[in-house]
Design a protein around this nucleic acid. Structure first.
Lengths: 243, 243
DNA sequence: CAGTGGTCTAGACCACTGA
DNA sequence: CAGTGGTCTAGACCACTGA
């Protein structure tokens, strides 16, 4: 595929910076010099450098110029993938087994879930994600029936609750928390581990606009599932490709 | 601060999309209509919409038009903050205690670390990160002496090894892996927990260009430290502000 | 106060692709 | 094949800020 000129300018400097040829603090040519070097208009140079600044590879300061940025250890892109898709990518069979389902009346809603229920009922679900028939993760979920009326009659044979929700009521906001937790006795039983075994705990709340949709807690076997974030040329190139 | 026109156009649609006023699949006006509505040039409209497309809020298709995108559950920005800075932001005292330090000769380098050592020696460090004098995380690290000659004589009283490295040999690539692990007996002792207690394990490898710099494994108390990722107006606005 | 980047214009030509 | 977005030009004025 043909590379546009601003992509070429960006990838030129991306390569120099990521290879270490240009070190943090080094100054880049000013836009006018690049205009002459690439024989193009200033807008094209500006587009390329703005993209590099967005990616955090360079810092731009008026009057002073443009400099290679120091890498920031904070803020990396982390893939929090769709479970079913991940399992299938590994070439394994994915399945979901529902363990429990009940409707919580208003009076049964815990104080912590008051905002989620927003005066209505909650659907409480528990289920197990399986890969090749073996437990991979246990999921506890509560869904606002007021926000998602159709959920009460939904069945999750074709898609687990998370995928069903994404398909029917796409969220606009999400907060994900990652921590470590020991498996409770009943959880341990479902996951085929000993009570207290270290698990990766992923909690997520989602909203559509200001309306809370769902809260979910997923417990992964500590050695069966990792989250990997990579920062470098490949991810920078991906970020660049979206520009 | 004054908002530029392309920022205003972007934030207008960002608000409509994130509030749910515009739903996934909805079509946005074509660029020419926005040119008339905002009374500006097409480049300005294009810059705003390109930024929204980069942020993943809209999809643009030639001939077909521009549409509100479905939210993607995968790929969220996760803050993996600098430990010392995080602790100090909480208003606590941060300190680092070195537990062990030794130089591994070539013959002592494990096969897994061959690439890291690249034929040279490794410096092996263990240390404890403390908040208000209480253990927060245990760190095991190996550093390529060939890549970072100055490390042998470094002391970490003012900055822990991670900060020292970032200051002296900024990396250009990093890979971070997050999982759950039980504390080994000696690790548990340092962290003041029982052996096998669930901990969040963060492993990171960094490179400068193609040269490996360090491998580090950090073990956090399961309930003392969380990683939180948020996707929504605030993070979208931050991403937007970098555009 | 002068150098640098930020933004914007009013066009143009083209590639892609769905009606 | 026509509508839409992708890219680019050759300027312009301005805000900021460090020499």
């Amino acid at each position: 595929m043909k590379q546009s000129l601003h992509e070429r300018i960006r990838s030129d400097f991306e390569r120099r910076i990521l290879s270490g040829e240009m070190a943090p603090g080094d100054r880049l040519p000013i836009e006018q010099e690049l205009v002459e070097h690439y024989d193009c208009s200033r807008m094209t140079v500006n587009k390329a450098l703005t993209a590099l600044a967005n990616a955090g590879l360079i810092d731009r300061r008026k009057r002073a110029g443009t400099f290679v940025a120091r890498p920031k250890v904070h803020s990396m892109v982390l893939d929090i993938p769709d479970l079913a898709a991940t399992v299938r990518e590994r070439g394994q069979d994915y399945s979901y087994v529902e363990l429990a389902r009940r409707v919580l009346r208003r009076s049964q809603v815990a104080p912590d879930d008051a905002a989620l229920a927003s005066g209505g009922q909650l659907l409480e679900l528990s289920g197990l994600h399986l890969a090749n028939g073996l437990p991979l993760a246990l999921e506890h979920r509560r869904i606002s029936i007021k926000a998602v009326p159709g959920i009460v009659d939904a069945d999750f044979e074709t898609a687990p609750p998370g995928s069903w929700l994404l398909e029917h009521i796409p969220w606009t906001e999400a907060e994900t928390r990652i921590s470590a937790a020991g498996a409770e006795p009943d959880e341990a039983k479902h996951l085929h581990v000993k009570p207290g075994a270290p698990c990766l705990q992923v909690e997520r709340r989602t909203w559509r606009g200001n309306v809370p949709i769902t809260y979910v807690r997923q417990l992964f076997l500590g050695d069966a599932y990792d989250l990997v974030a990579r920062f470098g040329p490949s991810s920078a190139a991906q970020a660049a490709a979206r520009d």
